[in-house]
Measured scan of single mutants.
Amino acid sequence: EFILQPIHNLLMGDTKEQRILNHVLQHAEPGNAQSVLEAIDTYCEQKEWAMNVGDKKGKIVDAVIQEHQPSVLLELGAYCGYSAVRMARLLSPGARLITIEINPDCAAITQRMVDFAGV
């Protein structure tokens, strides 16, 4: 995967993360976080594997957030924003999600994903 990915990106003209974002923009409903998550899950199941938590493990994350109702949540590494959208949609009003992503391209994609999801 890591050796072939740059070749695939070159042939496709963009990165996997950008392709995931484009899929979301084309297939998800703006302002609907659940729709965004479903679009990412569908893309990763049908098109390309991606390094995200996914729906199965995501339900565990959901349960922890719902049980503890944090007022501040810190995410280290956002990748394409799946977990940020997943967690933010469950936060109480006034709660904050702080996401740190070292890769500026992934940070920009995450910001667009979060904005599109409306969270």
Results as ranks from 00 to 15, higher is better:
N32I: 06
L4Q: 05
I7F: 09
S35N: 11
Q34L: 01
Q26K: 03
P104T: 07
S35C: 07
A33T: 09
I3N: 04
E29V: 08
L97R: 02
D105H: 13
N22Y: 13
I98N: 02
P104A: 12
T15A: 14
R112Q: 05
T99I: 12
Q111E: 05
H27N: 00
Q34P: 10
Q26H: 05
D14Y: 06
T99P: 03
D105G: 13
Q18P: 01
R112G: 03
L21M: 03
M12R: 15
F2I: 12
M113T: 12
P6S: 07
M113R: 00
R19H: 04
V119G: 01
L97M: 02
V119L: 05
I109L: 01
I102N: 10
G118V: 00
K16R: 12
N103Y: 12
R112P: 02
E17K: 08
H23Y: 04
I109F: 04
Q34E: 15
V24L: 00
G31V: 01
E29A: 12
T110S: 10
L10P: 15
E17G: 05
V24E: 00
V114A: 06
I102T: 13
V119A: 03
I100L: 11
V24G: 01
E1V: 11
G118D: 02
G118R: 05
D115H: 12
S35I: 03
I100F: 09
F116L: 04
H8L: 13
T99S: 14
A28S: 03
A33P: 08
N103T: 07
H8N: 09
V24M: 01
C106Y: 03
Q5L: 13
Q34H: 08
D105N: 14
D14E: 10
E101A: 07
N9I: 15
H8R: 07
E101K: 13
Q5R: 12
L4R: 11
V24A: 04
E29K: 09
R19S: 03
E1Q: 14
H27L: 02
M113V: 05
Q18L: 13
L25Q: 00
L25V: 08
N22I: 05
R112W: 03
P6H: 03
T15S: 07
L25R: 11
F2C: 15
I102F: 11
H27P: 00
G31R: 02
N22K: 12
Q18R: 13
R19G: 09
V114G: 01
A33V: 10
H23D: 08
P6R: 08
N9T: 12
I20S: 02
H23N: 11
Q111P: 01
P30A: 04
M12V: 13
I3L: 09
S35R: 09
D115E: 15
M113K: 01
I98T: 01
Q18K: 08
A108V: 05
I100N: 00
L10R: 10
C106W: 07
L25M: 10
Q34R: 11
I100S: 10
A117G: 09
A108D: 03
P104R: 15
E17Q: 08
L97V: 08
F2S: 11
A28T: 03
H27R: 06
Q111K: 04
A107T: 08
E17D: 06
Q5E: 11
N32T: 04
D115G: 14
F116Y: 12
T99N: 08
I100T: 11
I3M: 11
I102L: 14
H23P: 01
L11P: 12
E29Q: 09
T15I: 03
G13A: 07
G118C: 03
G31A: 02
M12L: 03
P104H: 13
I109N: 00
I20T: 08
D115V: 13
V114E: 00
G118S: 03
D14H: 09
L4P: 14
Q18E: 08
H8Q: 14
F116C: 09
P30S: 12
A108T: 01
I100M: 06
A107P: 00
N103S: 12
I3S: 10
L21R: 13
N103D: 15
A28G: 06
L97P: 01
Q111L: 06
Q5K: 05
D105A: 06
A33G: 12
N32K: 05
G31W: 02
P6T: 06
D14N: 09
I109T: 06
E29D: 11
M113L: 01
R19P: 04
N103I: 14
V114M: 03
H8D: 10
E1D: 15
H8P: 15
G13R: 11
Q111H: 07
A117T: 00
E1G: 13
V114L: 05
L11H: 10
D105E: 09
I109M: 00
Q5H: 13
A107D: 02
G13V: 07
I7L: 12
P104L: 12
P104S: 15
M12K: 02
P30T: 01
L11R: 09
N9S: 14
C106G: 13
I20L: 06
A117S: 02
L4V: 10
A107G: 13
G13D: 07
Q34K: 08
L97Q: 01
A28V: 00
E17A: 13
N32H: 07
I109S: 08
P6L: 04
V119E: 05
E101Q: 12
G13S: 15
H27Y: 03
K16T: 11
I100V: 09
N9H: 13
N103H: 11
I98L: 06
A28E: 00
D14G: 15
L21V: 11
S35G: 10
L4M: 09
I3T: 11
N22S: 14
A107V: 07
E29G: 07
P6A: 07
H27Q: 02
M12I: 06
L10Q: 02
F116V: 04
H23R: 07
T110N: 02
D105V: 07
I98V: 09
H23L: 00
S35T: 01
L21P: 02
Q18H: 11
F2Y: 12
C106F: 03
T110I: 06
P30R: 15
G31E: 04
A108S: 15
L11F: 15
A117V: 00
A117P: 01
I3V: 09
I98M: 08
K16E: 10
E101G: 08
Q26L: 06
T110P: 02
N9K: 05
N22T: 06
A33E: 04
C106R: 14
D105Y: 05
D14A: 13
L21Q: 00
L10M: 09
I109V: 07
D115Y: 08
Q111R: 06
G13C: 04
A28P: 01
V119M: 04
I7M: 11
G118A: 06
P30L: 14
L10V: 15
E1K: 14
A108G: 04
I102V: 14
F116S: 03
I102M: 14
E1A: 13
E101D: 09
K16N: 06
E17V: 10
F116I: 08
H8Y: 11
F2L: 10
L11I: 08
I7S: 14
K16M: 07
L11V: 09
Q26E: 05
H27D: 02
A117D: 00
N32Y: 07
E101V: 06
T15N: 04
N9Y: 10
R19L: 00
D115N: 14
I7T: 14
H23Q: 05
I7N: 10
I20M: 05
D14V: 07
A33S: 02
R112L: 03
N103K: 12
I98F: 10
M12T: 10
L25P: 01
R19C: 15
N22D: 14
I102S: 14
A108P: 04
C106S: 13
I20N: 01
T15P: 05
F2V: 15
N32S: 11
D115A: 04
I3F: 15
Q5P: 15
M113I: 02
P30H: 05
I20F: 10
A107S: 05
N32D: 04
T99A: 15
Q26P: 00
